[in-house]
Amino acid sequence: MTGEELDSIIEEKGQDAPALVGILQEIQKREYCLPFKTLGMVSEKLDVPMSRLYGLATFYKSFTLKPVGRHTVDVCMGTTCYVCGGQLLMDRLLRDLHIPEGGTTSDRKFTVQPVRCLGCCSIAPVIRVDSDVFGHVTQNQIPKILERYE
């Protein structure tokens, strides 16, 4: 990310402390992770110590330090989803995409990770791709769901 790009993000989100998480989210969205170099610029421009940025980056699940795929597949492993077969969905995803849990496909299209409760137990088991939630998912629906994403 260039300094100008970052400047425009900061201009949009604001300079004060509460805006910081929003700025990091925007960086995560554009870069698929929080790169060390970009955070170095954030630290300098906003006068926030690097140690605090690292603390934030490792606090929220939605931030990653290593690049993730263009689409993130969250597999709910909350109690209800787990009982309803969440692990089977996870196994199928990993098998189809040839990646380990938390891994990213070689074409950088998908990252698959387990999450705790997504808060929609009534439609368990649930997976979420980016911000789309899919309920009552069966193993066989998995390829169709993945097809919808570029």
């Binding site: 170095g40 110590p49 690097m50 690292y54 603390g55 606090f59 699940k61 938390g102 387990p114 705790r116």
Partner: peptide, 27 residues
Amino acid sequence: QKVLNFYGRGGVDDSLPKIGIIAGFDQ
């Protein structure tokens, strides 16, 4: 100096680092 800070305070599973204290950007 604000060099030291906590990290991994949001850690809920093994994919995130466990809580600890880092210097700078884990340097």
